[in-house]
Design a protein around this nucleic acid. Structure first.
Length: 222
DNA sequence: GCGACAG
DNA sequence: ATCTTGTCGC
């Protein structure tokens, strides 16, 4: 698929995003998703966490090959295939996806979290480390937030998950509203800047990547 | 025209 | 994302 076709597909799928939670939405299991790279090889991980207790539940790790370059705005085309494989490898489907990237806080309002949510039908939230739009620094205290703006639209929030740390950027992915998404991210990020789901997935795929012989893997060491 | 630009 | 030493703090 070419970048032009990818853009056309995003424009076609964007209207499918449902920016609100279904009646009685009460997620119990959240899945964190992340990918680690080693040249053109990659490892994707899905890690489930009990939202109530924080307990680590099922997880899955899969490997694959890079099929699309990193292009801002088309990030999903690089990680989506592997992330779908990781989700499919889970013994049970999670109630909500916590994605490492943006949802509607995207040029065409269809970032990774939206794409993943729409193709799986699972509610999804986007949590990015850096903004695409503009924002004013939130108050220093954990829980405070300010609007994230893009093209004069309020597309998400800059949320402070820990006192004095750089905020994370939360946006709606699919089948959830921004308030619910914000509360969920805050609950999942009790002790660190990033939600436990994202941290768990990051550790898993990174560890798997290190143990996998690849093109330009470490010269020596183990 | 030039730079910026989720991971 | 990944390349990289030391350093501050719980």
């Amino acid at each position: 698929m070419t970048p032009e076709e990818a853009v056309a597909e995003q424009l076609r799928l964007a209207p499918s995003v449902v920016p609100r939670a279904a009646e009685g939405f009460a997620p119990r299991v959240a899945a964190g998703l992340d990918v680690a790279y080693d040249g053109d090889r990659l490892v994707a991980a899905a890690a489930c966490v009990d939202i109530e207790t924080g307990e680590r539940l099922d997880s899955a790790v899969v490997e694959g090959r890079t099929a699309f370059p990193y292009v801002p705005g088309l990030f999903a085309y690089r990680e989506l295939p592997a992330l779908r494989d990781a989700l499919a490898a889970l013994p049970a489907s999670p109630d909500v996806l916590i994605c490492d990237g943006h949802g509607i806080a995207h040029p065409r309002r269809f970032g990774l979290a939206c794409h993943l949510g729409v193709v799986t039908g699972i509610p999804a939230v986007g949590v990015a480390k850096n903004p695409l739009g503009e924002y004013s620094p939130p108050a220093r205290e954990r829980g405070s937030w300010t609007p994230l703006t893009l093209d004069a639209d309020e597309v998400g929030r800059a949320l402070r998950t820990q006192d004095g740390v750089k905020p994370v950027f939360v946006s709606v992915g699919h089948l959830i509203d921004i308030d619910t998404a914000t509360g969920l991210v805050l609950r999942l990020a009790r002790r660190h800047r990033q939600p436990e789901t994202t941290r768990a997935a990051d550790h898993l795929c990174r560890a798997a990547s290190v143990r996998t012989p690849g093109p330009r893997s470490r010269p020596a060491g183990g």
